[in-house]
Amino acid sequence: MKITRAQVEHVARLARLALADAELDALTDEMDAILGYVETLNSLDTDHIVPTSHAVPMENAFRDDTVRPSLGTMKAVQNAPAAAGGCFVVPKVIE
């Protein structure tokens, strides 16, 4: 066994999870199986594998930063549910 029930209880306490005894036993078995699988993966030879952060190639989708005219106050508040003096009117949230 790679993980003990006490370690699972400790992690559950850190995550503020209240687990029943049956749940702790089941979770200990599941986490032990997961760690066993990770141990199998650790035994693979990955010396000649290039590390990647994505499974598929990613390309930067940013556009060029160009100066453009702003939207304008009246157009910005045009579809607002409530506006006054060129500003959005929202309910008070701080008492």
Rank of each mutant, 00 (worst) to 15 (best):
E30Y: 12
A15R: 13
I3P: 03
H48D: 14
I49A: 12
D25S: 08
H10E: 15
V38D: 01
L17V: 03
D65W: 10
V56W: 06
R68P: 01
V67L: 11
I49W: 06
A61Y: 00
D65V: 15
N60D: 15
F62L: 13
A33H: 01
T4L: 08
A33P: 00
M1F: 04
S53N: 07
R63G: 15
L27D: 01
V50L: 13
T66P: 00
L27Q: 07
P91N: 07
T4M: 03
F88H: 08
F62H: 08
L41C: 13
Q78P: 00
G72M: 10
S43E: 15
D47R: 15
M1S: 15
S53F: 12
P57S: 08
A18W: 00
G85M: 03
A82F: 09
I49T: 13
D64M: 10
M74N: 14
I3S: 03
T46W: 00
L14H: 12
T28M: 08
H54D: 14
V89R: 12
E39P: 01
A6L: 10
V50F: 02
D21Y: 00
A20Y: 02
A15N: 09
P91H: 03
D29Y: 02
Y37P: 00
P81V: 09
A33T: 05
L41T: 03
L14A: 09
V77T: 15
A76E: 13
E95K: 13
Q78I: 02
L71M: 14
I49Q: 08
H10R: 14
R5N: 07
A6P: 00
V38K: 04
Q78M: 09
A20V: 04
L19F: 06
V38E: 03
A12W: 01
L19V: 06
V89I: 15
E59H: 11
T46K: 08
E30W: 08
A12S: 12
P57C: 03
D45P: 04
D45H: 08
A26W: 00
R63D: 08
Y37W: 09
L19N: 09
R5I: 04
V50N: 09
E95G: 14
T66Q: 12
I3M: 06
T46L: 15
L41R: 11
H54C: 08
R16N: 11
A55P: 02
N60K: 10
G72S: 06
G85L: 04
D65S: 13
D25W: 00
A22R: 10
A20N: 05
T40A: 14
V67Q: 06
G85Y: 05
V38Q: 03
A20F: 01
K92G: 08
V77M: 07
T28H: 06
R13P: 00
A61I: 13
E39N: 05
N60P: 04
D32H: 02
N79E: 08
L17T: 02
T28L: 10
A84T: 03
R68V: 15
A84N: 09
A84P: 00
R63Y: 03
E39Q: 10
G36K: 02
D25E: 14
V11T: 10
M74W: 11
A26G: 05
R68M: 14
V93K: 11
E30N: 06
E30H: 11
F62N: 11
A82Y: 11
I34D: 02
S43C: 04
T73Y: 00
H10M: 11
